[in-house]
C-alpha cells in the first residue's frame, strides 16, 4: 500500500473534509509590493504565490524588442521553504522553465500587447508555499497582478485543477491528491468561454477528460467571481485614497478595471 489516506471516502468527503466540487479557501492580497507596477498574492488553501508585474516599460534589450507589440517576459522562482522538503531549485531547472513558458503562453493571447509596441512586460512569479494546484495559483496571481498594473487585457483568465478518482471527478486538488490521481489544469476566459490553457501530465480516459474539462470551466467562473470581487475591493480602496488627489485619474483606472 503506497498511501493509507483515502482520496475520496464513502461518505463523499476528501481527505481535507471537502466534497468533490468544493474549492479550497481563496485569499487575495493586492496591496503594493515594493516598486512593482502591479502585484498580487493569492492563496489557494496552502498554496501561496506572489506575482509582481513591471511594465509596460521600454525594452531593455534590443534583441527582444518587437516593433509592433510588447514582449512578455516571465520568470518563476520557487522558495526553498515552500515545500516540507527543503530543496533548492535553480532558475535553470527544467520544471521551472516549463512553468514560466506555460504562464507566458497562457497570457500572450490575452494581454493586448499591440497597445504597447517596443516595450516589455516583466512578470515575476514567486512560489511561497506549495500544496497542489501550483500552476493554477500562478496563473490566477499573474492575472491579478496584471490587472493591478493596469495592463489592458482582452478578457479575464482564471485557472483551476481538476482530477478524477476512479470515476469521480474532483476540483482544486491538494498535493496529496495530485500525487494520487490523474489531473488537468485548465485556464478559461469566463466572458468568451475560451480556453487558453490545458495541461495534463498524467494519462486520463477520454470520457473522463470531457467531464472534468466541463467542470473545470464551470469552476473557473466561480474563481473568476472571487477574483473580480477582490479587484473591485482594491479599486474601491484606491479610489477613496486617490479621490483627494485627482478624481479623474480614479475614474479612468476604474474604467480600465472593468474592461475584463
Amino acid at each position: 500500500m503506497s498511501s493509507r489516506i483515502e482520496i475520496l471516502n464513502e461518505g463523499g468527503f476528501r481527505s481535507d473534509g471537502r466534497r468533490q466540487y468544493e474549492l479550497r479557501d481563496i485569499t487575495i492580497d493586492m496591496s503594493q509590493q515594493g516598486t512593482a507596477d502591479g502585484s498580487a498574492i493569492i492563496t489557494h488553501g496552502l498554496t501561496q504565490v506572489l506575482v509582481s508585474v513591471f511594465g509596460p516599460r521600454e525594452a531593455k534589450m534590443r534583441s527582444q524588442t518587437l516593433y509592433d507589440r510588447a514582449n512578455i517576459n516571465v520568470e518563476v522562482s520557487i522558495a526553498s521553504f515552500s515545500t516540507g522538503e527543503r530543496r533548492k531549485r535553480s532558475r535553470g531547472d527544467k520544471r521551472i522553465l516549463e512553468m514560466a513558458a506555460t504562464i507566458k503562453s497562457t497570457f500572450e493571447p490575452v494581454v493586448q500587447t499591440n497597445l504597447y509596441p517596443r516595450s516589455q512586460i516583466d512578470i515575476f512569479v514567486q512560489v511561497l508555499q506549495q500544496d497542489g494546484g501550483l500552476l493554477q495559483a500562478c496563473i490566477n496571481a499573474t492575472m491579478l497582478a496584471l490587472a493591478s498594473a493596469g495592463i489592458s487585457l482582452l478578457d479575464f483568465v482564471s485557472a483551476v485543477t481538476g482530477g478524477v478518482h476512479s470515476t469521480s471527478p474532483m476540483l482544486d486538488l491538494t498535493a496529496l491528491e495530485e500525487n494520487d490521481i490523474p489531473h488537468v489544469t485548465v485556464a478559461v476566459m469566463p466572458r468568451t468561454g475560451k480556453v487558453t490553457l490545458i495541461t495534463m501530465e498524467t494519462r486520463l480516459h477520454v470520457d473522463r477528460f470531457e467531464e472534468i474539462f466541463k467542470l473545470a470551466c464551470e469552476a473557473g467562473k466561480v474563481i473568476h467571481g472571487e477574483m473580480r470581487a477582490a479587484i473591485r475591493l482594491r479599486t474601491g480602496m484606491l479610489i477613496s485614497a486617490m479621490q483627494s488627489v485627482s478624481q479623474n485619474a480614479g475614474e479612468k483606472e476604474d474604467e480600465q478595471m472593468y474592461e475584463y
Binding site: D16, G17, R18, L46, G84, E85, Q129, D131
Partner: peptide, 16 residues
C-alpha cells in the same frame, strides 16, 4: 521519507 529525510507536512482541514 523513504530516503530517510525528515520533512515537514502541512495539511488543511475544512470543518463543516
Amino acid at each position: 521519507t523513504a530516503r530517510g529525510k525528515i520533512i515537514k507536512v502541512l495539511r488543511e482541514r475544512y470543518l463543516r
